[in-house]
């Protein structure tokens, strides 16, 4: 079921066109990576989705409610961080959450729950002004989860997180997606989203240049397969990696034939594995080596 549908979104600031016919869609359990360089229109798109800015033309539908026509019903299903997790610095993390919870009439137990979820139990009573950026990021995620949203929108959520924190957040997002939450994560760095997202939308200069499921992007070309063998010999177009291994670009269905060829030549095969294309590599291929960062 489509829980977030963005269609033909247009937005201009004065004469400058910021967004042009932007289309996005998220279904239950999706994690959409929304990728683009700084200034491409990621945050503007998110603000239009959340009703923070007026839509020039096009529509945003959240769980069947149009954000422009039925704002409160639509927004009730969303949680999110926009730009940065801004909180009242002079209040404690807990007080900040309490204020938000109060707006939804959410009980205290739920606050404790989300605090535990992002691992802030020990510092939640401290003032936010004493938090590191990573802790604020966690607090922001906790805040956006308070109302059990169906759609979660996170703008650069891994900013300032250490590798361990980054991993924790990724695990958390995967867990949430399994509970049928639809998640949109924006990022300027492709590599950060690898392994998390199942869909990718790439935005450049206000236009979506690519929207697809991640395995489709990755599998656009055949993958390389790496063979570990007892000795290297040149065969077909294989590339030597070391004395005992090489890689070759080959269709998956041709592998058994290729193995037979190797066996015929008396080569012992110890292992074969697919060299996985990273999201970044896939994108580089797509744009012809034109890096977006």
């Amino acid at each position: 079921m489509e829980i977030l549908k963005v269609s033909n979104l247009n937005k201009s600031f004065g004469k400058k066109k910021v967004l042009e016919n932007v289309n996005l869609s998220i279904e239950e359990g999706d994690i959409l990576g929304f990728i683009g360089p700084n200034g491409a229109g990621k945050t503007t798109t998110i603000k239009l989705i959340l009703g923070l800015q007026k839509i020039d033309s096009g529509s945003v539908t959240i769980c069947g409610y149009d954000i422009q026509k039925e704002f409160t019903k639509a927004i009730n299903n969303v949680g999110g961080i926009i730009e940065s997790p801004d909180m009242y610095l002079y209040l404690s993390g807990y007080d900040n959450l309490k204020l938000i919870a109060n707006m939804y009439n959410i009980k205290k137990e739920r606050i404790d729950e989300v605090v535990k979820l992002v691992g802030l139990e020990n510092r939640i009573k401290d003032k936010v002004s004493k938090y590191s950026l990573g802790m604020r990021q966690r607090l922001g995620i906790a805040a956006s989860l308070l109302n059990n949203p169906k759609v979660l929108i996170l703008d650069e959520p891994t900013n300032g997180l250490d590798p361990e924190g980054n991993r924790q957040i990724r695990d958390l997002l995967k867990k949430l997606a399994k509970q049928k939450m639809g998640i949109l994560i924006s990022s300027h760095a492709l590599s950060e989203l690898d392994n998390v997202v199942n869909k990718v939308a790439i935005i450049q200069n206000g236009k979506i240049v690519e929207e697809n499921a991640i395995d489709k992007i990755k599998r656009r070309d055949e993958s390389y397969f790496i063979f570990e063998v007892d000795k290297f010999i040149s065969i077909n177009d294989n590339i030597k990696l070391s004395d005992n291994s090489f890689k070759i670009k080959i269709n998956r269905e041709d592998i058994p034939v290729f193995i037979n060829i190797l066996i015929d030549k008396g080569i012992k095969i110890y292992s074969i594995y697919e060299e996985k294309l990273s999201l970044e590599d896939a994108f580089l291929k797509k744009t012809g080596g034109n890096k977006i960062v």
């Binding site: 959340l50 009703g51 409160t72 019903k73």
Partner: peptide, 14 residues
Amino acid sequence: NKGTIKNLLIRPYS
């Protein structure tokens, strides 16, 4: 100024 307005406007209130 603090950016907290966003947190206020994405709640179910007009």
